[in-house]
Simulated assay, not measured.
Amino acid sequence: MLPWLPPHIVAFPPVTHALDDPDGLLAAGGALTPEWLLNAYRHGIFPWYAEGQPILWWSPDPRMVLFPEEIRIRRSLSKRLRNGGFRVTFDVAFERVIAACAETRADTDGTWIDDAMRRAYEDLHRLGHAHSVEVWHQETLVGGLYGLSIGRIFFGESMFSRAADASKIALVHLAHELHQRDFALIDCQMHTPHLASMGARDIARETFINYLEKNVNAPNPADLWPTEPT
């Protein structure tokens, strides 16, 4: 039986209790308040559910992560970074980024970022926990990503592109900033070929939890989210 979490208690089962099929499903219920979400991420758990489903909480094994120093920049992307005419900012348009990530895509039946999810992460942004990276071409927002920064871990949530390689450009700039500030890793949650092509790799959930235990309580650099990259 999948554990059902009441909305007034912020407590999760151990991640070792997560199902093998579907991989990482841990519990249902709970709430999308900042208290619930921050507690979840600190323990290697994240929410992910489809329209019409209850809140579902996951901790897959293995876990896809990107170590900032291992970001892979292919020749074509390097050329676009130099000559594409893009400008990158941080935390300038969080609500626009999450709205773009929530748009239904041609290759999917819907979006997992519903109104409740959007409001929850907007609340976390106002509290200083959730952040965005924006990619602009002239004055048009063409790509970006958002996630949570807790200690020396960045928990990536979603990204979007409206121009070729725009989300990759956002990730490259994020990895550079995090590497400069000695972050341990970027949590990518689940394996995708797109992230693997940029250097992300799978590690055992137990190893991932060890990284969290060592890094989520570290000081978060005050200058991490400049409006322009260094």
Rank of each mutant, 00 (worst) to 15 (best):
M1S: 12
M1C: 11
P3W: 14
W4P: 00
L5F: 13
P6Q: 15
P7A: 12
P14W: 02
V15K: 05
H17T: 10
D21Q: 13
P22N: 07
D23N: 15
A27S: 10
W36I: 00
N39A: 14
N39L: 05
R42W: 02
I45N: 00
F46M: 04
F46D: 06
P47F: 07
P47W: 11
A50M: 03
A50W: 10
L56P: 03
W57E: 08
W58L: 11
S59M: 06
D61M: 05
R63E: 04
R63N: 01
P68H: 03
I71P: 04
R75D: 06
S76Q: 13
L77G: 06
S78I: 05
R80C: 08
R80K: 14
G84T: 11
G84F: 04
R87Q: 12
D91H: 06
V92Y: 09
V92K: 11
F94Y: 13
E95F: 01
R105C: 02
R105D: 02
A106K: 13
G110N: 12
G110C: 10
A116V: 08
A116F: 07
A116R: 12
R119F: 04
Y121T: 04
D123C: 08
H125C: 12
R126I: 00
R126E: 11
G128T: 12
A130H: 14
H131T: 12
V133C: 04
V135E: 07
H137E: 11
L141Y: 02
V142H: 07
G143H: 00
G144Y: 09
G144Q: 08
Y146W: 12
I150E: 05
G151F: 08
F154G: 01
F155I: 12
S158V: 09
S161G: 06
S161D: 10
R162L: 14
S167R: 09
K168W: 01
K168C: 04
A170R: 02
L171Y: 00
E177Q: 14
L178F: 09
R181I: 10
R181E: 10
L185N: 07
I186C: 10
C188A: 15
P193G: 01
H194R: 11
L195C: 08
M198N: 03
A200L: 06
R205P: 06
E206Q: 14
E206F: 01
T207E: 15
F208L: 08
I209E: 05
I209V: 13
L212C: 05
E213C: 08
E213G: 13
P219S: 13
L224M: 13
P226D: 09
E228A: 15
